[in-house]
Design a protein around this nucleic acid. Structure first.
Lengths: 189, 189
DNA sequence: CCATTTGCCTAAAGCCTTTAGGTTGCTCTA
DNA sequence: TAGAGCAACCTAAAGGCTTTAGGCAAATGG
């Protein structure tokens, strides 16, 4: 019997590819086993169950995304940093729709805390250092950025901008410009 | 045999309640049949299949949401309209998380066109009449609003703001105020 | 080179979706 | 008001998915 040489890491990576190609909702043990040329039960040595598989793909995605974002941020500040960071999100979601959808999975608190999630918030705060925001305003702004990035990207992925002009990328550029001016002149209470 | 008196409408409405209480991903024919005290196969007279059930709940949600939004917009303009409209989204998502999740379902183009989706975009355009935006800028602004509303609400629903202060509603208020000032002074190309 | 680990297997239970076909309560017409 | 036709609901069954239990054999390492 020739072995496939599975490890948890390889299973999860194959899962991420499956999610990207077939959609996150088709990321199931049986489909993945088929794709790996292995019996379904064999996966259960590497992954606790279907939900665990999806969680692990989510963690992989969060980590990849954080890595790319950190690289994009290096050596940039202010508007440059804002745009570079935002583009990482959008590009990642377009290249890896299944992984991006996975990253949206609701994680239980401990798992979330141990994930790359907090690094994302941290990086957004770093971007805001290029603007003059302090205290709660900084948090509000972080949340605004998160909302816009996630909102735009998921509406675009969902096809929400498909049947109207101008093209989505135009709006993306203009929206980032608008956010930049808003952050420069943030209205205080 | 006592009949349950099902109709497509009643099935869909029960489906919406199930989604709200158990989560959109638990909206399945078998679970719904159990809840209605009916054999699973009986549902298939009212609904084509599991996907059709979810689609119909999505259409219901889009319609309810559009109705509430239209009511909130009546007699309001400018910042008042913006805030009232945004609150409808957030409140609806909090009252009916399953329905709101359903409304995010990707619909095929014809279904989407026949849904209440276009009414939502229309109403956002109406809000922008209170600001001085024309041509493509109006579209960009509509997309920004959609992104922020959807992004914030879904991050909040997902628990993204749970473990940090200030509380999410504070950010919501401040973000809407920021959007208002941004729309008043939208940066042109 | 033998012992242990572990990667992968078969088998089976129990769930879910979907289709086919049958029965029976309702409604509306003649 | 009888009964024809429709619609609501049923049983049965096929086939797929998830998960657990238990077994064999390939790799590993002393």
């Amino acid at each position: 019997m020739v072995r496939a040489g599975l490890t948890t890491e390889r299973v999860v990576h194959a899962g991420a590819e499956l999610a990207d190609e077939a959609g996150f909702d088709r990321l199931t043990p049986s489909e993945l086993a088929r794709r790996l040329g292995v019996q379904v039960a064999s996966l259960y040595s590497h992954v606790k169950n279907a939900h665990d598989l999806r969680t692990k793909v989510a963690l992989l995605a969060l980590d990849e995304l954080a890595g790319r974002a950190a690289a994009a941020l290096a050596g940039r500040a202010g508007r440059d940093a804002l745009v570079a960071f935002a583009d990482v999100y959008r590009d990642y979601a377009r290249e890896h729709p299944g992984r991006y959808a996975a990253a949206q999975l609701r994680l239980d608190p401990e798992t979330a805390a141990a994930s790359a999630g907090p690094r994302h918030a941290e990086m957004m705060r770093a971007i805001l250092r290029g603007y003059d925001l302090t205290g709660p305003d900084e948090t509000h702004a972080v949340r605004l950025l998160g909302s816009v990035f996630h909102g735009f990207v998921s509406l675009e992925a969902q096809g929400g901008f498909d049947h109207s002009s101008p093209a989505a990328p135009d709006s993306w550029v203009r929206i980032l410009a608008a956010l930049d001016t808003l952050l420069q002149d943030w209205p205080r209470s």
